[in-house]
């Protein structure tokens, strides 16, 4: 079966620093893929290239077979015009570490702004859809609150509803719980877990190893701009993983044990 997302030989540099040195991977429909790796290993950059928030220098990204961000012409590869880019971006929703809700819009308005402005959906219809999505993420009583009145966990759930409002084929999460107080992480992970159960295709950059282990079908370990290891959680967290992968995951497990150990001791 054709993969939903197919990345081939992706390269991306910032100035002289090459951050992605040839990334190739495929994401199947209904698959949940995790990206893990040390800080600065290029996880965010890879995710942002998929959504064309960063423009890669070489390689290709295909969404259901369609080249993302570019079009091949007889005179070479050309950047797509804004309208085409907009259409492609709506097929891939993005959820940011810092939520990035618009502070001058209520929760509901944040959710329906895109559909109204970009797709021209009638406001009444959009509101109905927006309310349903906020109910889905458990925020039916915070519909008219401005972001500043919401907790971090609530803001991130609004951001997920905003992503769902695009009716995307895939959702890209960039460390969705890293900016949250520990007690608020669970409510956001629950929403993501529910989406996984519904069969939503997702890529999740995360430092929550336990969550990745539980929810992801496959995990990619990035280091030095390359995919060092890729496979189901049992492989990545198991004994057959590569040495760098083992070292990386062990550090997380150690820290986890130290914390739980301290709590019990």
């Amino acid at each position: 079966m054709e993969p939903l997302l197919a990345i081939e030989g992706l390269h991306k540099s910032f100035g002289l620093i090459e951050v992605l040195k040839g990334i190739s991977l495929q994401v199947q429909r209904r698959e949940v893929m995790g990206f893990i790796g040390a800080s600065g290993s290029g996880k965010s950059t890879l995710l942002r290239c998929i959504n064309m928030l960063e423009v890669p220098e070489a390689g290709s990204i295909r969404l259901a077979g369609e080249l993302v961000g570019f079009r091949d012409t007889p005179r070479g590869r050309r950047l797509l015009p804004p309208r085409e880019l907009s259409r492609q971006r709506r097929r891939m929703a993005m959820v940011f570490q810092q939520f990035n809700l618009w502070p001058h819009r209520t929760a509901l308005e944040n959710v329906i702004e895109g559909p109204i402005v970009v797709q021209g959906i009638a406001p009444a219809k959009a509101r109905e859809m927006g309310e349903a999505l906020l109910r889905k993420v458990g925020l039916e009583d915070r519909v008219h609150a401005y972001p500043s009145r919401l907790s971090g966990g609530q803001q991130q759930r609004v951001a997920i509803a905003r992503a769902l409002a695009l009716q995307p084929e895939i959702i890209l999460f960039d460390e969705p719980t890293s900016a949250l107080d520990p007690e608020l992480v669970g409510e956001v992970l629950k929403v993501i877990r529910d989406l996984a159960d519904e069969g939503m295709t997702m890529i999740i950059v995360t430092h929550e190893m336990g969550f990745a282990h539980e929810v992801c079908d496959r995990i990619v370990f990035l280091a030095d701009g390359r995919i060092q290891d890729m496979g189901p959680p049992a492989h990545i967290f198991g004994a057959e993983a590569g040495p760098r992968t083992r070292e990386f995951t062990r550090r997380y497990l150690d820290r986890h044990q130290i914390i739980t150990g301290a709590a019990h001791g």
Binding site: R83, M94, F96
Partner: peptide
């Protein structure tokens, strides 16, 4: 990030300017 969020829901640069940047 607020402008990137606008791009990610499909707004063009001028839509993001009118709907997000200028009001704020």
């Amino acid at each position: 990030g607020l402008v990137e969020a606008a791009s990610s829901v499909g707004m063009t640069r001028s839509q993001a300017l009118r709907r997000v940047v200028l009001p704020l």
